[in-house]
Computed example of a mutant assay.
Amino acid sequence: MTLVVKRTLLGASAAASALVIGLAGTAGAATIGFNKTSGSGKAEISGTYEYHVSGEIPETKEKLYAGSFKGATAKDKVAGDGYEAVLALSYQDFRNGAWYPVKNYVAVVNGSKSWTFKNKKEVKAWACDRKVGTTKLLNCRAAF
């Protein structure tokens, strides 16, 4: 009976080790919780950002990233003042064999949502104010 228990424990230990090694093989994934207010303090963004290496460009060996935003929220902290809260993004987007810069991409306005992405790099989330009815982002501060 002692031999059976030892073998079972050894087998369970080996399986657990294989699982840990398997997970380590996908290392490079990172999760960042964020919370930031705009420069004026009127807007607050929060949520979770996750990214991982999803491939590489064969010619340059440069890494491509994929990931997600979960519970990404833009909250208006001063209701009725004529401004709204914006979670904006900036990143590099790989399309048609080249990198294209994207700035001031409005992802969430006065609300919350989740989404995934791929073939991006240098992703940053920004807490911004925006006057209602306009598109110009104001008082932006990077969350990470």
Rank of each mutant, 00 (worst) to 15 (best):
N119C: 01
L9Q: 11
E84N: 08
S112L: 07
L3F: 12
W126A: 03
A72T: 13
A14N: 08
I45Q: 06
Y105C: 03
K124P: 01
A72H: 12
T26D: 02
Y51N: 04
E44A: 15
S114Y: 06
L9Y: 10
K103H: 11
G133D: 01
N110H: 11
N96G: 07
E62R: 08
E59I: 06
G22A: 05
K63V: 03
N96C: 00
K113T: 10
S68V: 08
T135L: 03
T73V: 08
T134Q: 01
G39Y: 11
K120P: 00
A98L: 04
G82Y: 05
G82M: 06
S17I: 13
A66E: 06
F144I: 08
A14T: 12
L89K: 02
V132W: 03
L138Q: 14
R130W: 07
K63Q: 14
T37S: 14
S68L: 14
S17Q: 07
E50C: 07
F94L: 00
Y91V: 00
K120I: 01
G71F: 10
T26W: 04
T60N: 01
F117L: 01
V123R: 04
I21M: 09
V109R: 15
S13F: 14
W99S: 00
A18S: 12
S112T: 15
K36T: 12
K70D: 12
S114I: 05
K136V: 05
V132C: 01
F144N: 13
K77P: 08
V109Q: 13
A16R: 05
V132L: 04
K63N: 13
A18K: 06
G25T: 00
A142Y: 05
L10I: 14
Y65D: 00
M1E: 12
R95H: 01
C140D: 06
K6V: 15
G11M: 10
F34M: 08
N35W: 04
S38R: 10
K120A: 00
S54R: 02
T2S: 12
K131I: 04
L3H: 11
K63M: 08
G97D: 01
A29T: 14
T73S: 13
G111N: 09
S13L: 15
V102W: 02
L89F: 03
C128V: 07
A24V: 03
V5R: 14
V53G: 05
E44H: 13
A79Y: 11
T2H: 12
N110T: 10
A12T: 15
P58H: 06
A127W: 06
N104H: 07
T48C: 05
